[in-house]
Design a protein around this nucleic acid. Structure first.
Lengths: 362, 362
DNA sequence: CTGAAAGCGCTAACAT
DNA sequence: ATGTTAGCGCTTTCAG
């Protein structure tokens, strides 16, 4: 079988092959495929036809080599299936594609040697026009010596580097809103179950909580610490059950909130009658656990889109000054895990009460 | 300030710059940095030293252009934060990095025009050595005309293409195990809340369920349908509450199972005393909802690692024949949402009973 | 063990 | 509006 106009050698067709078939120069093929101006309608049509016939596609390596640009963005993200990071990544991919950029992803696992710096290095080797670091954890001062713009989402100024920018994700305001919701219900104070403080995301939420209390002149109670998991929330919840002053808890994510609720329920306390619990994220099951969880929803898509816009602008016009920070909207979702505090004293937790022998452990 | 040995023009250092500084040819630099044999220890040391001093890194575009290989793999995945797909993606990234490949990710959103074919096309344009399609949905027959190997994970033979391979993810066996668990407890039959049948993942689970029933000569009851969300599980759960024959439900994922439990509980039924519920995935909160959910755990890491091994082998040795399919282990996690069926007849759901005015809707 | 020469397939800069 | 020429920075091939 003879392949009309195909390439003799068998490999993928190149620009010259298309050019030959269309009866133009290779440069013209390049022009058409890059949508440059000053190409006659007739030529454009012939080139596209020829390209289609041959199944031609631009070779991105050659293009990158010649132009010095890859049209791709590198993303450094935590290697976890946690709802927040995963949702943000999806938003970023979408926004990147809409902006005409491909995505190269490197995960840093917690406790990775090298961490962010290593991941950035690896992206640089792959060749990217810009880098987005998504909600990293604190590894101490990291100095990035990089010649492409870097945007760090959700980590205030902990990364040095000439073309490094940072943008918050609005978590502090959300945390403040969550805390205020509980105070508005009449709770005298709000306890906070924080995430691991190596995560900037966890610190933001802690700051928001602390700020809300401070604004009303309330001294913050001792911070409780978890690791984002429902298991850690459960452990803290058991302590809380014994703690008679506590009538309201703000957990730094929904998983921990669910663990807290579980522990309180097992201890014979009622949520929200005895203790109110607020989560953070609005994970898909939050509305369907018992009781349905009051929480705040993170605007992942908006944050991703804004971040990407910023990065792309820095890539395409290095001189332009940065647009002002964008404040994503605050979205408090009130369900059934919050209520006014109990009248009079909160009941003590019945010692070791456990409904129907259920066990939480897996 | 004079930069010793640096490049005159200011851009990133190139191989020749390193060569000059080390007093060798550019080719030798290439040899050293690619770990080729037949380089004297002395030369190797000098080259590495020079490279370090200049902050040199290989230009991957140039390398790809010259060698015809990119050392990167493309991944097509669904743009959802669902636990399964997200976990699989993380496993794939890890495995790819361990194998020395970079990752380029394209998401297909449900109902995307083009869908998988478009995503593959976009990866081909970016230049990848192989493509991994992760748990796609059925878009009708897709014919991929591609010159790199393609591995489709979890979609039996629905993608045509010369170098296209498929591998299951073991979901059918897991579903069978989940169903058998309920039958072993003494339930006369098991209802199935299936995922959207456009997802191959959902079909596998349905097949496993049907197979388990068939093996015991039980005619499968009508299949219930959800969309993976807790909301859809909740809706189905309300119907089920009215359905007195039903004492056991196997939901195709944990989110839906949680929705079902919520609806049953609201209807005044007890889980597991009146109805048992089994989920699928073992999401992180599964152990901490009320009651803790019995479920089966998907071995994402093992599946990702095996899949990647297969793909890399197909890339690096196109002649080699494929290793036999790998059967990931089955991991049933029994918690507190399953029990033997109630003695005598299941109680009817009290009409419109709702505990304490909780509402599930967000 | 090391080096020289010839591209890989494109885009940039400059004609025309 | 289109063509020509010269690289981009590597790897491949072939000589030593």
């Amino acid at each position: 079988m003879t392949r009309v106009g195909g390439r003799a050698g068998g490999g993928a067709p190149r620009g010259v092959d298309v050019a030959r078939l269309a009866g133009v120069s290779q440069k013209t093929v390049s022009r058409v495929l890059n949508g440059e101006r000053y190409v006659s309608e007739d030529v454009r049509r012939r080139v596209l036809e020829a390209a289609g016939e041959l199944g031609y596609r631009l070779n991105s390596a050659a293009r990158a080599l010649a132009s010095g640009r890859t049209r791709s963005i590198g993303v450094v993200t935590l290697g976890t299936a946690l709802y927040g990071p995963a949702s943000l990544l999806i938003g970023i991919e979408r926004a990147a594609r809409d902006a005409g950029y491909a995505l190269r992803v490197v995960n840093t696992l917690e406790g990775d040697p090298g961490g962010v710096a290593g991941a950035v290095e690896s992206l640089l080797e792959q060749g990217v026009d810009g880098i987005l670091v998504s909600e990293p954890i604190d590894e101490g001062p990291v100095s990035l010596s990089v010649d492409v713009p870097v945007l760090v989402l959700g980590a205030p100024a902990a990364f040095g580097g000439a073309r490094t920018m940072t943008r918050g994700v609005g978590a502090e305001r959300l945390a403040r809103t969550a805390t205020e919701h509980l105070l508005d219900l009449g709770h005298a104070t709000v306890h906070h179950l924080a995430g691991p403080q190596r995560w900037f995301a966890a610190r933001d939420r802690l700051e928001g909580w602390r700020g809300a209390l401070a604004a009303r002149g309330i001294a913050p109670p001792a911070v409780l610490h978890g690791d984002w998991s429902a298991a850690s929330g459960y452990a803290v919840g058991r302590e809380l059950a014994a703690h008679r002053d506590c009538t309201a808890v703000f957990a730094a994510n929904d998983d921990m909130a669910i663990g807290v609720v579980r522990a309180l329920t097992e201890a014979g306390l009622r949520v929200p009658d005895d203790i109110s619990v607020v989560g953070f994220d609005d994970i898909p099951v939050a509305a369907y656990v018992t009781p349905p969880l009051t929480t705040v929803r993170q605007p992942f898509d908006a944050v991703a889109r804004e971040g990407l816009r910023l990065l792309v602008r820095a890539i395409e016009d290095p001189e332009a000054d940065l647009p002002p920070a964008y404040d994503p909207p605050v979205d408090l979702v009130v369900r059934a895990s919050t209520a006014p505090p109990p009248r009079g004293a909160r009941p003590p937790a019945p010692p070791l009460a456990r409904p129907r022998g259920d066990t939480a452990a897996g």
